[in-house]
Each structure stands twice: as C-alpha cells, then as structure tokens.
Computed example of a mutant assay.
Amino acid sequence: MEKIVQLKRIKGQELCLIFLLIFLGCSKDDDLLPQATAVEEVEIVTEERNVTIGETIQLNSAVIPEDADNPTILWGTDNPDVATVDELGKVTGHKLGVVTIFAISKENLSISDSVVLHVE
C-alpha cells in the first residue's frame, strides 16, 4: 500500500513567522567580538605653571583607561598670541600673559582637561 503524503499550503503569515523564528534564532556571535575600550578621562600631567617668553616646555597627558582604543590627544590654546602648543604638547611662550592649554580626546571631544600657564 502506498502512503499518500498531503502537503499543506503555507499562508503568508505563517511564512513570515517561520522566517522570524529562523532569523531570531540565529546567533550573530556579537559576544565573541572584542568590545571597544572608550576614553573615559584625559589628564594633563605637569608641575609647570610658568613659561618664559621664547621658552618651550613639555606638557604630558594621560588617557584613562590606559588601554583605550583611541588614546589620541588634540592640543589647543585659548590665546595663541601668548603661547602656542604643538600636537605633542610642547608649549612655547610668546608674550606676557595668561594662557589656558587644553588636551582633548580625539575619540570624544567632550572629554578634556586644561591647565593655566603664566608666560613671564
């Protein structure tokens, strides 16, 4: 005796449900990918508070956590006529005055630190 197999016609809603179950059941293995380590804090590390005209001093920065994926620092000054700062944190005094030097996380521009220097 031959067995007769009867096929059921799948409706559109059922087909959508099947696709959703398959799609949602598939793991994308996101947990296996390394997670990015974001910059949480930037600090300017210096004991210098004064610079003389024509003198260059080195400011150093620290990024927290130390293993941040993008520890790049952008340096800036609020008054380049008084003192300038290069991309490595070297400050050069140009004329008498007070200047604020900024260290800003390139990854997150809202994370920064600053130091006030007196040019004598």
Rank of each mutant, 00 (worst) to 15 (best):
Thr46Arg: 06
Arg9Met: 12
Phe102Ser: 13
Thr77Trp: 01
Ala83Val: 00
Ile111Pro: 01
Leu15Asn: 04
Met1Ser: 04
Asp31Phe: 13
Gly76Asn: 03
Ser114Gly: 06
Ile18Asp: 04
Phe19Gln: 10
Lys3Arg: 10
Ile22Leu: 12
Asp113Thr: 00
Gly54His: 07
Leu88Trp: 09
Leu7Phe: 08
Asn70His: 07
Leu59Ser: 06
Pro65Phe: 02
Lys3Phe: 04
Pro71Cys: 04
Val116Gln: 12
Thr100Met: 11
Asn79Trp: 00
Ile53Gly: 01
Lys28Thr: 14
Asn60Pro: 10
Ile73Trp: 03
Ala38Val: 11
Thr52Glu: 14
Asn50Trp: 09
Glu66Trp: 02
Gly97Leu: 08
Phe23Lys: 01
Glu41Asp: 13
Cys16Trp: 07
Ile18Met: 14
Gly25Gln: 08
Gly76Leu: 07
Ala36Val: 14
Lys95Asp: 03
Glu14Gln: 15
Val85Ile: 10
Asn70Trp: 02
Ile4Tyr: 06
Ser61Tyr: 05
Ile22His: 00
Glu41Ile: 01
Ile4Asn: 11
Ala68Cys: 01
Gly76Lys: 08
Leu88Lys: 15
Leu7Asp: 09
Val116Trp: 02
Ala103Gly: 10
Glu120Met: 01
Lys28Glu: 12
Val119Lys: 05
Leu117Glu: 09
Ser27Ala: 14
Ser61Gln: 08
Val63Gly: 00
Leu96Thr: 12
Glu66Gln: 10
Val85Gln: 05
Ala36His: 10
Ile101Tyr: 07
Asp86Met: 08
Pro34Trp: 15
Thr84Asp: 06
Val82Pro: 01
Asn70Phe: 14
Asn50Leu: 13
Asp81Ile: 05
Trp75Asn: 11
Lys28His: 15
Leu32Thr: 12
Leu59Pro: 09
Ala68Pro: 03
Phe23Val: 08
Leu15Ser: 12
Trp75Gly: 11
Ile22Asn: 02
Ile73Ser: 07
Leu7Ser: 09
Val115Asn: 01
Asp113Trp: 00
Ser61Met: 00
Pro71Met: 07
Phe19Cys: 12
Ile73Gln: 04
Asp69Tyr: 02
Ala103Met: 07
Val99Lys: 05
Leu109Ile: 11
Val82Leu: 02
Glu55Val: 03
Thr77Arg: 01
Phe19Tyr: 08
Val63Ile: 13
Asn50Ser: 15
Leu117Gly: 07
Val39His: 05
Val45Cys: 06
Glu43Cys: 03
Leu33Gln: 02
Ser114Asn: 15
Gly54Asn: 07
Trp75Leu: 12
Val5Lys: 04
Leu88Ser: 11
Gly54Cys: 06
Val63Gln: 03
Lys95Pro: 05
Phe19Asn: 03
Val82Asp: 01
Thr37Arg: 11
Leu7Glu: 05
His94Asn: 13
Ser105Pro: 05
Ser105Tyr: 05
Ser110Glu: 10
Val63Thr: 09
Val91Pro: 05
Ile18Lys: 14
Leu15Val: 06
Asn70Lys: 13
Ile111Phe: 03
Phe19His: 12
Ser114Lys: 14
Ile53Ser: 05
Glu43Met: 15
Thr92Met: 13
Ser110Ile: 08
Val116Ser: 14
Lys106Met: 10
Ser110Pro: 01
Leu109Cys: 00
Gln6Pro: 02
Asp81Arg: 02
Val119Phe: 00
Lys8Cys: 03
Asp69Cys: 08
Asp86Ala: 03
Asp29Asn: 15
Thr37Met: 11
Phe102Pro: 00
Thr37Gly: 03
Thr92Cys: 10
Asp67Ile: 08
